[in-house]
Design a protein around this nucleic acid. Structure first.
Lengths: 124, 124
DNA sequence: CCGTATCCCAATAGATACTG
DNA sequence: CAGTATCTATTGGGATACGG
């Protein structure tokens, strides 16, 4: 196909510069991931669940230190909606709800490790 | 140090579950990267510069299609402030400003590739 | 050509009070 | 215990107009 070297995002051809990030929609695919994990408490939640889960709600709140229950619940709901975590409601009394990282959530690990490496290699 | 298995984030010890993401501050390091790249037009800008740079301002605006000059400039300033891109102002008339991905900006590539892989492996 | 200044709207998140 | 309801402050980004 034609010479698209200066055109929108990355050209479709393989082997040239930029090809390893893929054809056009790559930015959108990356943005999707960013939207899933962005938010004041999402990384703390994900790391906490990764270190040890399942965890009950109030234990999570205590460990995150500083988050309100409202905001924590909002984030947990969003994370569960996107499939990164799983919510288990035992229909007990007193109430008992647990959260755990899903298989998809564990799939984030390579991204997080790459991001952490980047932060270490390029300090603020 | 006591048994921290259920404690804050990831325990300091090596070799257990969670250790591959590192000790405590990892969430903050990842959040730093997220803050640098989050924003409506940052991924499109980064991918565009990665595909071909340097690029002049209005060419970038045309390629991004839909962004206003104000918002584009805001993002470019922030990206430059964090060191991900470089801004070159040739003191010419008519005005001529170019943006290019920095070495640090290219350091994002492993993260972006991991994020793209994740999106493909776990579609919406 | 490359911005900045203003105004506006929606989304985020903190504080606080209430509920099954 | 595990939420929801309100209210508020701040931020991000779009539209538009103006300026060097």
């Amino acid at each position: 196909m034609s010479e698209t070297s200066t055109h929108l995002l990355v050209p479709t051809g393989r082997g040239q510069r930029g090809a390893c990030l893929g054809p056009d929609g790559s930015a959108a695919q990356v943005m999707r991931v960013i939207r899933m994990v962005q938010g004041r408490w999402r990384m703390p939640i994900i790391f906490r669940l990764y270190a040890d889960s399942p965890v009950r709600t109030l234990q999570l709140k205590r460990d995150l230190q500083g988050v309100s229950l409202k905001v924590l619940t909002q984030h947990l709901r969003e994370l569960a909606k996107h499939g990164l975590i799983e919510r288990t409601d035992f229909g007990e009394k007193p109430l008992r709800v647990e959260y755990r990282l899903s298989e998809m959530g564990r799939g984030l690990v390579p991204i997080l490790r790459a991001a952490k490496d980047f932060s270490l290699r390029y300090p603020a």
